[in-house]
């Protein structure tokens, strides 16, 4: 009888911890697809996705934060109902909201880079407020710019028209989520990986 021999290549402990958090956060990002909170003065209810994109960068750092979002995108691409409206499929990633979704990965990476400034994870609660706010503002602008730019190209809209469809309705929600992300970090209720 033929035997198959292969040596086991175990994963390092610190990698397992970060990887498990990245995977579970990706699932959480998917689970929020069905939660929406109505906000005043806006026809569009808030979904919590960008909040957890921010938190991925803040708590997992540039590498694992980006990995977490990529896992979310991959899970959606193979058909898990993780995108808004509980949809999935590769088509969504190239569809009209695809730009926003890809921008999430970049945004989480950028937040991680600004806050942690390297692969060594810091506790975001210890960071000065301007750095936290600055990183989240940059991330939000990136998401809107890439998402709206792609939507304008795909649907053959002028930039102003795309902004009217893809940015203006979401600005109030965006502000709420930015404030909430800072409040979560400053509440110090989430512990960093040691």
């Amino acid at each position: 009888m033929e035997t198959h021999r292969e040596s086991v290549d175990p994963v390092a402990d610190d990698v397992i911890k970060s990887f498990a958090r990245a995977a579970v956060l990706a699932a959480l990002l998917g689970a929020t697809a069905f939660v929406s909170i109505p906000i005043p003065f806006s026809p569009v209810p808030v979904t919590l996705q960008t909040l957890f994109v921010f938190l991925a960068g803040l708590y997992l750092g540039p590498v694992w934060g980006t990995v977490s979002i990529l896992l979310y995108l991959a899970a959606g691409a193979i058909g898990l109902p993780v995108f808004s409206g509980m949809t999935g499929g590769l088509g969504v990633l190239v569809g009209e909201t695809g730009g926003y979704l890809w921008a999430y990965a970049i945004a989480a990476g950028v937040v991680g880079l600004i806050v942690h400034r390297g692969r060594e994870l810091r506790d975001p609660a210890e960071e000065p407020l301007p750095i936290l706010v600055g990183s989240l503002v940059v991330a939000t602008l990136l998401i809107y710019a890439i998402g709206t730019g792609y939507m304008a190209w795909l649907l053959e809209l002028e930039l102003g028209e795309a902004i009217a469809v893809g940015v203006l309705p979401f600005i109030p929600g965006g502000v709420f989520k930015l404030v909430a992300a800072i409040a979560i970090v400053k509440s110090k209720r989430i512990t960093q990986i040691r």
Binding site: A27, Y72, A75, I78
Partner: peptide
Amino acid sequence: GVALVFRF
């Protein structure tokens, strides 16, 4: 990771 997302 995708398998874990599916599970969780």
